[in-house]
Simulated assay, not measured.
Amino acid sequence: MKQLPFLLLGALMLTACSRPATEAPVAAKPASTASVASVSSKSKAAPAFTPPAEADIPEGPLGDEIRLGRAIFTDTPTQAHDYVGNGLSCSNCHLDAGRLADSAPLWGAWGMYPQYRKKNGRVNSFGERLQGCFRFSMNGKAPPLDSDTIVALESYAWWMSKGAPNGVKLAGAGYPKQGFKPPQPPDYARGATVYAKDCALCHGDDGQGQQVNGRNVFPPLWGPQSFNWGAGMHELDNAAAFIKANMPLSRGGTLSDQDAWDVAMYMDAHERPQDPRYAGDVAATRAKYHDTPMSLYGTTVNGHLLGSGAAK
């Protein structure tokens, strides 16, 4: 296959890095109740939002369901083992149990659904969006919409978002991608240098992360236990924005824009599990699902056709 231009010749270190299980959670803004900052009608700035404190989860059956959702979110392989295909948890990419701004917090997503998603060409409910996470990021299978797993996760997201306006994009929602461009095209070799300096300590020289008692404290970034080629984190802009805002862990914002793009390229130029939409042909799968310069799937990097099978 024809190799793409140098812009795509690197691989993003999609540092989908979770906080270690033994580390204290990232502190959220102190609040006993959710709050939304008022914004002038003339202002184009997105409103700020502070999610409710964990201590405010109510007692009773509803609170039990919310707490179950939080448990699934922070330890997905244990709590939703029937639906996962790797060792990742939701909180590996949505930090601080889905609370942290600029790491796709739950409170920034709940109020934006239902919405049309180009990824599957139809309007999705929030539950369907969660199903996609299991299929792609967890490399597993979608829990039924009426399953305990989906209902608990929806309950947790609903509670986390109490007080937030519906249909309004909040400051800190998603990953901060707007206007985030690399000064130079991302470069694999530069990314390898950044990875060795700023990422390997946690994620390992081989990108396979670290485990304690069989549980990820730092997640694998590529290989058979990482997210698959259908996950949003395999796209360079998503990975670079996440890395810039959140990595290295507890030192988000310290990498330069160029370093974030380069290391994202380095990570995403490694093999990972196949896109579950694959129908036997890498080129056809790229043409149908990955026809964007942000995806390295179906391109050749260092002599290897990405998507053709696991390679170190």
Results as ranks from 00 to 15, higher is better:
266 Y>D: 13
282 V>R: 01
283 A>D: 00
103 S>W: 05
31 A>H: 14
147 S>T: 07
90 C>N: 11
237 D>T: 10
191 G>L: 13
87 G>L: 05
62 L>S: 10
148 D>A: 15
298 G>F: 00
42 K>R: 08
178 Q>M: 08
20 P>W: 06
284 A>L: 06
95 L>A: 05
116 Y>H: 07
68 L>V: 07
74 T>Q: 03
127 G>C: 06
298 G>T: 03
184 Q>S: 12
204 G>W: 10
203 H>A: 12
268 D>K: 01
11 A>Y: 13
223 G>W: 05
15 T>W: 13
56 D>M: 12
156 Y>S: 06
307 G>N: 02
116 Y>E: 05
158 W>S: 11
264 A>Q: 06
26 V>I: 15
85 G>F: 11
152 A>I: 15
206 D>C: 07
106 L>M: 07
268 D>E: 11
66 I>G: 07
32 S>N: 13
63 G>T: 14
299 T>Q: 01
179 G>Q: 10
106 L>A: 07
40 S>E: 13
164 A>D: 05
9 L>R: 12
157 A>K: 14
79 Q>S: 04
301 V>E: 02
208 Q>F: 11
94 H>W: 03
210 Q>V: 08
256 S>T: 12
193 T>M: 02
201 L>R: 13
200 A>W: 05
71 A>F: 08
152 A>T: 11
188 Y>V: 00
83 Y>T: 00
6 F>R: 14
305 L>M: 00
247 M>E: 15
69 G>S: 12
275 D>V: 02
239 A>D: 09
261 W>F: 14
84 V>Y: 00
137 S>W: 10
290 H>N: 02
15 T>H: 14
76 T>Y: 11
111 G>H: 08
8 L>D: 00
258 Q>G: 01
265 M>G: 09
133 C>G: 05
235 E>R: 09
61 P>C: 10
277 R>Q: 02
276 P>F: 00
139 N>K: 14
252 G>C: 09
109 A>N: 12
181 K>C: 00
185 P>V: 15
119 K>P: 01
258 Q>P: 01
158 W>H: 13
43 S>E: 08
300 T>M: 02
224 P>A: 08
20 P>I: 13
26 V>G: 12
157 A>V: 04
266 Y>N: 11
229 W>K: 02
63 G>H: 09
235 E>F: 06
186 P>T: 08
235 E>I: 05
107 W>D: 14
11 A>N: 15
20 P>K: 03
167 G>K: 03
73 F>K: 08
248 P>Q: 06
18 S>Q: 04
263 V>Q: 01
288 K>A: 09
103 S>A: 07
296 L>F: 02
85 G>Y: 14
78 T>D: 14
167 G>L: 10
95 L>V: 15
30 P>S: 02
193 T>V: 09
230 G>D: 04
200 A>C: 10
279 A>Q: 05
248 P>A: 06
294 M>N: 09
172 G>A: 06
10 G>A: 08
140 G>L: 03
143 P>V: 14
71 A>S: 11
263 V>E: 04
68 L>H: 12
291 D>I: 14
311 A>W: 11
19 R>C: 14
34 A>E: 01
13 M>E: 05
